[in-house]
């Protein structure tokens, strides 16, 4: 089973909300000091989904990451978890893209990789949260896609997926090749092992420029966008919480109930 997992380097979504700052002039988010970027958690879970298939029946996992100035310690994490190869689409012209230009570049890189049975993506990137790139890659490649999977099993040349729906899940089977996007309900991704970290340190990523995947700079990054960001801003939070004071938490709990009664909330 040849598997490709698309992983994005993002601002750490677990960073304290107070550290989140926007530069209104450029409509960009400022990197909080002291909080390094991470692999988008949904993408890490996509790596986990691929590793579970590799564990059960073997296979090869190639990780594909697009960006510029990618931190090697960050983007190599899937290798330290057990992925086999890392391809970086790294160039300044890949910057500032939207779902369109990103999906296009990734799809072209996947064509260049050539052999694949399964492509995994996170259900959405933890920064822009749009959840379009996976479906976009599948559409460009002309293969079926199943989104928001919490379980993926390979059986008899097909893949069986549990796709999350509002009040439960659907079991869906798909022929290969196919693209699957993975949701957090899959469960936590495994930790990197010491052995894995050492093996990953020795591996050199393959680096592709736009010319290597046969794309024009006008089709990718900011130039290839089909949507325009007009404004990026932080919603105003009121922050007027009345803290119930008491000598013990139990007393505070009881007082809270009285407070809610007085406010006619219960």
């Amino acid at each position: 089973m040849n598997m490709i997992v698309c992983c994005k380097q993002v601002l750490d979504p677990e960073a304290p909300p107070a550290s989140f700052k926007i530069d209104p002039a450029s409509n960009t988010v400022l990197q909080p000091p002291g909080v390094p970027p991470v692999v988008s958690p949904f993408d890490e879970q996509a790596v986990e989904a691929a590793l579970r298939i590799k564990d059960s029946q073997g296979g090869k996992i190639t990780v594909l990451t697009l960006g510029n100035n990618l931190l090697r310690d960050v983007v190599k994490k899937p290798l330290s978890m057990g992925a086999d190869e890392l391809v970086l689409l790294e160039d300044e012209v890949f910057e500032g893209g939207d779902s369109w230009s990103t999906a296009y570049a990734l799809a072209m890189a996947i064509k260049k990789i050539g052999e694949f049975d399964l492509i995994f993506c996170g259900r959405q990137a933890a920064d822009w949260d749009a959840g379009q790139v996976g479906s976009g890659i599948a559409e460009i490649l002309g293969i079926p896609s199943i989104t928001v999977a919490k379980k993926v099993e390979a059986i008899d040349g097909k893949v069986r997926v549990e796709r999350v729906i509002a009040d439960g899940y659907q079991v869906v089977e798909v022929t290969l090749p196919a693209l699957i996007t993975v949701t957090n309900e899959l469960g936590e991704a495994r930790y990197a092992t010491l052995k894995g970290i050492m093996a990953a340190a020795k591996k050199q990523p393959t680096i592709w420029k736009p010319v290597d995947i046969g794309v024009e700079p006008s089709q990718i990054g900011a130039a290839g966008r089909r949507s325009k960001l007009l404004k990026l801003f932080q919603p105003v939070r009121e922050g007027k919480c009345e803290i119930i004071e008491a000598d013990t938490p139990a007393e505070a709990g009881a007082n809270l109930a009285v407070k809610l009664r007085d406010a006619k909330l219960i």
Binding site: R237, E238, G239, K240, C241, E242, I243, I244, T248, P249, A250, E251, A252, G253, A254, L256, A257, K259, L260, A263
Partner: peptide
């Protein structure tokens, strides 16, 4: 607490049963 109208700062294991 930035979103809340009322809050209790304390261990839920003690505060919740009393509440």
């Amino acid at each position: 607490f930035k979103e809340a109208r009322f809050g209790v700062v304390g261990d839920w294991k003690q505060a919740l049963p009393a509440f």
